[in-house]
């Protein structure tokens, strides 16, 4: 329960953080620490250097025109309660409010959650469903990656070893949007056994621009393309093919079969809930 020895540096600026990350082979960024510290304490990860970015000025929720910009160090609690998000993207704030428990939400950060790349986390799937954009700073400046290209595998993202997530942008849901986030878990503070983020725009008595993303149904958050098409087509049960092209894990919280079944039920329910909103 005591981490293996490591060095520790506090980054003074984003540039300084990038510089520090380049000084060693095995470095880790410390933000809220709620994913990293348990791994350190179990000695499942043994970085030689921790770069603490906690003092960088990256905690904010701002109006950015068509989108809402969220600083990478914004705590989940602040995402959940930001009036700008509650007004323009309630899916985002609602989902953030379901993460862990109050202690976790007051420490964990949106940038850390995305960069950690855990497919069981809530926000990656939500940002994927929203087609969000992620700014990544590196030695050559800042690049922007769309959510669909960001998640690469279990704990693998587009963020390189000498890079840092600085900002996340999600669109304002303009017009008559409907949404739902369903998180199936055994205990309130657990990760989702399966989660479903669903969002669409009402159009001609049906919906358009439907997006459904799944939590914990594969190595990364996944779009449920067949279910999206079924929703747009007005199918009676858009969940029937929700688990198509997924590869859910099997663990003590649920077998792959059970997760497939849950995905089908939860997608149907998410669509029902969204449309009833």
């Amino acid at each position: 329960m005591i981490p293996a020895p490591f060095d520790y540096e506090v980054a003074e600026s984003v540039d300084n953080a990038i510089e520090l990350l380049g000084t060693r082979e095995e470095t880790k960024v410390l933000a809220g620490g709620h994913s990293l510290l348990p791994l350190l304490r179990l000695r499942l990860t043994r970085p030689s250097l921790l770069v603490d970015v906690g003092r960088l000025d990256l905690s904010y929720v701002r109006d950015a025109g068509d989108s809402i910009a969220i600083g990478a160090l914004t705590r989940h609690h602040d995402v959940a309660t930001a009036p700008l998000l509650q007004e323009h993207n309630p899916l985002m704030s609602f989902a953030a409010g379901l993460i862990g428990d109050p202690q976790v939400r007051h420490r964990g950060t949106i940038g850390g959650s995305l960069a950690h790349g855990d497919p069981a986390s809530d926000l990656p799937a939500v940002v994927l469903a929203l087609d969000g954009e992620i700014d990544i700073a590196g030695p050559n400046g800042v690049r922007t990656v769309r959510a669909a290209e960001f998640f690469r595998g279990v704990f693998e993202t587009a963020v390189g070893p000498q890079e840092l997530v600085t900002e996340v942008r999600v669109p304002k849901l303009i017009g008559d949007h409907v949404w739902s986030y369903l998180k199936f878990r055994h205990r309130a503070q657990d990760w989702a056994t399966v989660g479903v983020a669903a969002v669409a725009r009402r159009s001609n008595g049906g919906v358009a621009d439907a997006a459904i993303a799944l939590v914990n149904m594969g190595a990364t958050p996944l779009r449920a393309g067949a279910a999206e098409a079924a929703w747009i087509a007005g199918a009676a049960d858009p969940g029937v093919e929700a688990d198509a092209k997924t590869e859910p894990p099997s663990d003590t919280n649920g077998s792959a079969d059970y997760r497939r079944h849950l995905a089908r039920v939860l997608v149907r329910r998410a669509v029902e809930e969204a449309e009833a909103r």
């Binding site: 055994h186 205990r187 990760w191």
Partner: peptide, 14 residues
């Protein structure tokens, strides 16, 4: 079930 993530001790919320 070697830790409190996999060994499910409930909380008041349950």
């Amino acid at each position: 079930t070697g830790n409190m993530v996999s060994y499910l001790v409930p909380s008041a919320a349950e």
